[in-house]
Design a protein around this nucleic acid. Structure first.
Ligand SMILES: [Mn+2]
Ligand SMILES: [Mn+2]
Ligand SMILES: [Zn+2]
Ligand SMILES: [Zn+2]
Lengths: 150, 150
DNA sequence: TTTCTATTGTGAATGAGTCTCAATAATATA
DNA sequence: TATATTATTGAGACTCATTCACAATAGAAA
């Protein structure tokens, strides 16, 4: 089934209504592979002439999280960041403290060791947060940083 | 040198003043191995007759973090938690989503793999956040949970 | 169409944490 | 010990992300 058809039918199946606001927010989040915050989404939509209230943006984000379309991330900045899950594979994040770049990684050995640690304590792993904060090779002068800050 | 003498001399060495408020907050955080939040500290002190403004609690926490006495943690609850670093060894956290228990763990293989992942991307690891969310064996009935909620 | 009720927009509220500023108290100095 | 200097404190205003209440609106079912 087409990806957007699935979006629509999941809403319907859950007794939720299909609104242009929900479609626009989902489209906006799908449109890049970045890890943006709620206000980014709100402002981008506004810029594009689709003004939707912040309350609706936040409410829709919760719907998208609940039905597995997106994921909330928290890098200790005091606000949530979002990413779509079009590619359903799990990954963790490497964040450059120099330039802000976010790199995705998966290491199967780490994944297995996490499960093992839980088992050793008699726990069943349900989810995990794994973030590596690092400095890119170019520290302290980074072209990426320059490019992002003009 | 006695642990508290060190507290006092670090303050002095940094040109900071030794106040009973700072001593009381440090004592309160040292007093347990739990992972409490700022308001817990504030309220416990108040309960004990040592009323200190919240602003001072937050300011002192930042001083304690800066000089390595404590560490801030963020478990995605929207507020910081604290832990003392009397034992300077690094550890990560396993959090039970059933009863709230927090278990500390270290796995040297994971620690090494984290460094390796960073190197593969040409980054220098500076710090990491690793939290395992899990269910204890007793799920959904947990004596620990019962004991914490009367 | 009409009806039903989920969704929306608005703006107020929340809550953790920060900031300002006048009063206070820790330390250095005489 | 008295005085001067200035870091620290307390009070409360403020910030900022997010949530909430509620009246108006608009999907969807009949
Ligand atoms: Mn990602
Ligand atoms: Mn700990
Ligand atoms: Zn992972
Ligand atoms: Zn670790």
């Amino acid at each position: 089934m087409d990806e957007n058809q699935e979006f629509i039918s999941i809403l319907r199946a859950e007794g939720l209504r299909y609104t242009w606001q929900r479609q626009a927010i989902w489209d906006e989040i799908k449109s890049t592979d970045e890890h943006r915050d709620a206000d980014d989404i709100y402002l981008s939509l506004k810029q594009a002439g689709k003004t939707i209230s912040r309350a609706t943006v936040y409410r829709t984000i919760d719907v998208l999280v609940k039905y597995g379309f997106i994921r909330k991330l928290e890098f200790g900045e005091g606000r949530m960041r979002l990413e779509h899950k079009l590619d359903p594979a799990h990954h963790d994040h490497l964040v450059c403290e120099n330039c802000g770049r976010i790199i995705e990684f998966v290491d199967d050995r780490i994944e297995d060791l996490q499960t093992a640690v839980c088992q050793q304590h008699g726990f069943q792993l349900t989810r995990h947060v794994h973030q590596l904060f690092a400095r890119c090779q170019a520290y302290p002068d980074c072209e990426y940083y320059q490019s992002q800050h003009r």
